[in-house]
């Protein structure tokens, strides 16, 4: 346990520097970004609709909590 703690403490002290970091082929940057976003998107499920929410032009579901009709006392 003590050894683990020492190891962890040691590991966080040696912060990596960004200077000189450039290992990825930059010509593939755009593809990498798109791939990373798409990969995460395909596994991202909107909790309520069980899928990605609708976008522009798609008919939206009716509002259950019609916020506008309820007048706040503060208004």
């Amino acid at each position: 346990m003590i050894a683990t703690k020492i190891l962890r403490e040691k590991s966080v002290r040696g912060t990596a520097s960004s200077l000189g970091a450039a290992s990825k082929p930059k010509t593939k940057v755009a593809d990498s970004i798109k791939h990373s976003v798409e990969k995460n998107k395909s596994t991202m499920k909107h909790w309520m609709n069980n899928g990605l929410p609708c976008g522009k032009g798609t008919e939206r579901p009716g509002i259950i909590y019609n916020l506008r009709k309820r007048k706040s006392k503060l208004l």
Binding site: R8, S11, V12, G14, T15, A16, S17, S18, A21, A22, S23, K24, K26, V29, S32, I33
Partner: peptide, 21 residues
């Protein structure tokens, strides 16, 4: 800055930064 975090296998918790753009 857009960058990719990469973990060093030899030293868990410490990372390398790959700045993309």
């Amino acid at each position: 800055i857009l960058w990719e975090p990469k973990v060093k296998e030899q030293t868990p918790g410490e990372g390398v930064v790959d700045i993309l753009q």
